[in-house]
Write a protein that binds this DNA or RNA. Structure first.
Lengths: 195, 195
DNA sequence: ATCCATCATGAACCCTGGTTCACGTTAATG
DNA sequence: CATTAACGTGAACCAGGGTTCATGATGGAT
């Protein structure tokens, strides 16, 4: 019944080369990078791209999927580190920093995805990320470091808007500003009744 | 010597129709809206677009320029309202809210601008906006409501990353989170020595 | 060593979308 | 009212880039 042979070795190799090249080239030369360029960067002919990915949209989608998986792993890593006694706020901070970093790499990719009508990918990875994040937030709230009203959606909202085309200094500053908004010991002063 | 005739009435009318249509269509159908669509929406032939704007890039640039002018006016409006005794924090909040709103409309426009290599436009309007903002921040700091380390660049950084493709509720939440980061009575708890 | 299914190649195809231009219209000037 | 420069029109043009396909190469099973 299993009529499917094992995939050829070079095919696997090429698939990986293509994905890497795609990520890199799109990151480098913007969302409008041509298939030709990607193929060239991968050391492969255009036709090979199409053997692995029926359409450019599919290729970009695959790259995005990789990215989401990466985010999920980062979140789960942070969560596990909680066991080793690190503070939740620090982990959240680290997580945001790491993801912002990664997102900076993938900004153009996401733009490309949007431009092509990115589609439902890897609900599983998304779920894992959300679960890990929820755990982190709860821990932080238990510590009294994170505002009670902060949710996973908040984190998503923030890092989906993370500045990705800014220099590192700006990104760091952004992170600092945003973290201040998540942590405790403040309610916006102007909402407070005039003491 | 003034050999230049007065511009024709319909020409002026059309120019406005084109700019409006461009903003609207790009907002509606994404950054990849074609010149044809814009022309149709403006009730004008393609050639007319090119009479007014030599290239698509120029057209988009013009739309962006309008937008920046709008931002500048919003900032100056807020600043003037300070005289009437309103708190600076509130004005900053209002400003961010209004700009976020406007930016939501212009998200696609900015994307289009980027994709075409948006270019230096209206340094003047930018300068006016920056000046007004600086005044607002200073006032807020004098009130003790805004962190001392907050700068105009911070505001720019934040609202340049404002979520623009999110529903209003999400945008409001974002604003709230961000404002918490700007206002006083907090330093990120996890940076504080363990009390 | 042989064979074949899988895979790679890249020139050619085609369609989308920005841009042009030769020709009709129309608003301003006198 | 006549004249003309400014303006509007839209079919046609052209380049860029995604996609295809006939042909050749190669890894793996026998």
């Amino acid at each position: 019944m299993a009529q499917t042979r094992a995939p050829r070795a070079d095919a696997v190799r090429n698939r990986k080369k293509i994905l890497d090249a795609a990520r890199e080239q799109i990151t480098l030369h913007g969302p409008d990078t041509g298939m030709d360029e990607i193929a060239a960067a991968a050391g492969v002919a255009v036709g090979t791209l199409y053997r692995h990915f029926p359409t450019k949209t599919d290729l970009v989608a695959a790259v995005v999927a990789e990215y989401i998986t990466h985010v999920a792993e980062a979140a789960e890593g942070s969560r596990e580190r909680l066991a080793s006694g690190s503070r939740a706020v620090d982990e959240i901070s680290d997580f945001l920093a790491r993801v912002t970093e990664a997102t900076a790499t993938n900004h153009a990719v996401k733009a490309a995805a949007r431009a092509l009508g990115a589609e439902p990918v890897d609900r599983d990875a998304e779920a894992r990320a959300a679960a890990a994040l929820a755990a982190l937030i709860q821990a932080g709230q238990a510590d009294g470091d994170i505002h009670q009203d902060v949710t996973v959606d908040d984190i998503y909202l923030l890092f989906s808007t993370a500045p990705t085309d800014q220099p590192p200094a700006a990104r760091a500053r952004w992170l600092s500003l945003v973290l201040t908004g998540l942590t405790t010991h403040t309610r916006t002063a102007h909402e407070k009744p005039a003491s």
